[in-house]
Design a protein around this nucleic acid. Structure first.
Lengths: 159, 159
DNA sequence: GCCCTGTTACTCGGATAGTCACTGTCCGAGTAAGGGTGG
DNA sequence: CCACCCTTACTCGGACAGTGACTATCCGAGTAACAGGGC
């Protein structure tokens, strides 16, 4: 079970975007984070489809957030990039073999699927409790309050 | 992010094993669940390496549980089959690019990694709260108390 | 009848190909900025 | 000097190859059961 690395990139891009005052193009993010430009664009497109960011075409265009950073949860970003389907998918093996259950006996998900779904809900709940604004504050605290200021300066400067 | 289907098979096998009184070979499980024998064997081998089941070679051999079903958590089975590494792996992009942090500033995991680790801990905690015995009871309840009895009968019979 | 021995066949275990999703990349459509021209 | 228009170049967006992990499979090593022979 491996999560796409694009999730990490997308989250850092959202934090960076929360400090930007004008649209930021993909190339700028790629330079800032040291990742491939074209592949990073794929992740930003996913965020755009999910309505988390909005694309501005043409010169001086790029991406901007559609909402306040405090209104964007980590879960939304993860689901936008990695998909909304849960990692575990029940294949209904209880309906197969010599002890197969009748279809009408399978109205409820089986016990295994319920346990996995419960854990998945706990995972999503934890991710939904953290917002992009929270991430920015945590990063700022780790750097003694310099990270967000340096980020704003770099985004405003020529690069 | 896709979890191996072997996890589902392994969990159902553990529940079945909890009702067996003698070692059960892989072929029997494959017939019961309607899955490929050779690939299912791979999952049972993983359980064996993790110490959840014990293999008995030779005629009338197979697999048996090493502990009581109430002492085997779903988390153990998931980790045995799917691996213990968390789905999210931080690539430390904060150390790269024009605003790269110094190595000594990265003693703690970054905020993004902490948020993902917290969610992962919640996921594992939920899985650790359910045991194989719990799964068996739930399946029995869903079938009005006939599933485990039929399972014991089939495992004892010639198949 | 009981014990020993050799055969037998059944078990697991790791090493070996095939397929799907993630990774990485490219070029085309669309658009706003900027400069030039005319009024 | 101002407004309009054209060129320009910069943006995103979806479509196209490469790689690693999951899927599926096979054959060999080891061992307990079983049958046969000897005591």
């Amino acid at each position: 079970m491996k999560m796409s690395n694009g999730v990490e990139w997308a989250l850092h891009c959202c934090v960076s975007l929360s400090q930007a005052t004008s649209p930021v193009p993909v190339a700028r993010f790629a330079e800032l984070h040291g990742v491939p430009t074209a592949y990073l664009a794929k992740q930003l497109q996913a965020l755009s489809r999910a309505g988390i960011v909005r694309s501005v075409p043409g010169p001086s265009g790029g991406y901007r957030l559609t909402r306040a950073p405090s209104e964007i949860t980590v879960l939304e970003v993860v689901e936008a990039v990695d998909g909304r389907e849960p990692p575990f998918r029940c294949t209904e093996i209880r309906r197969r073999g010599p002890l197969a259950l009748s279809p009408e006996s399978c109205a409820k998900p089986c016990a295994v699927a319920r346990a996995m779904a419960s854990a998945d809900a706990a995972w999503r709940g934890a991710l939904a409790d953290v917002t992009v604004a929270d991430l920015g504050r945590s990063i700022d605290t780790d750097s003694s309050g310099t990270a967000m200021r340096e980020l704003r300066g770099w985004l405003s400067g020529a690069g």
